[in-house]
Design a protein around this nucleic acid. Structure first.
Length: 129
DNA sequence: ATCATGACGTGCA
DNA sequence: CTGCACGCCATGA
């Protein structure tokens, strides 16, 4: 799995998020078989442009706990993401610290891992060190 | 090779 | 609830 395949996997998974639903970076990482690469999921989404085809609903990916990453004080990415989510019917609230949050219990979308990606399940797990 | 960085996650005070 | 520390890992200087 190289960088390009990683990006492609992230995009495909993000495209499967239903309308008016959200998921987390960590869960996307899990779905592609790399649960420790939550940060890199965000890195991949960063490469998306408004003219990306096919379009990727990047705004449906948020942090654990339902918080929208601010991406820095000077950027408007967070507000644009909130706007996109609200336009889809997702309720977004603003915390005291100026952060945006979504209720994952209501809008969260966390499907089970479809396939362990390149690491076939081994029924024998009693093989500790 | 080492150091710093980051659209993250989890644990703890 | 908020804030802080640490772990994780590809990427670029």
């Amino acid at each position: 799995m190289d960088g390009a395949e990683f990006h492609a996997a992230v995009y495909e998974t993000v495209r499967t998020i239903p309308n008016a639903h959200v998921t987390t970076y960590g869960h996307i990482a899990k779905l592609i078989g790399m649960p420790r690469h939550s940060r890199h999921v965000g890195q991949a989404l960063k490469f998306l442009n408004p003219d990306t085809n096919p379009p990727v609903p990047w705004h449906r990916v948020i942090g654990s706990g339902g918080t929208i990453s601010s991406r820095g004080p000077g950027t408007d990415g967070a507000s644009r993401q909130r706007d996109a989510l609200v336009a889809e019917g997702v309720e977004v609230v603003e915390t005291r610290g100026g952060e945006f949050k979504v209720d994952l219990r209501q809008y969260g979308w966390f499907p089970t891992v479809p396939a362990p990606a390149e690491l076939p399940p081994d029924e024998n797990e009693e093989n500790g060190p």
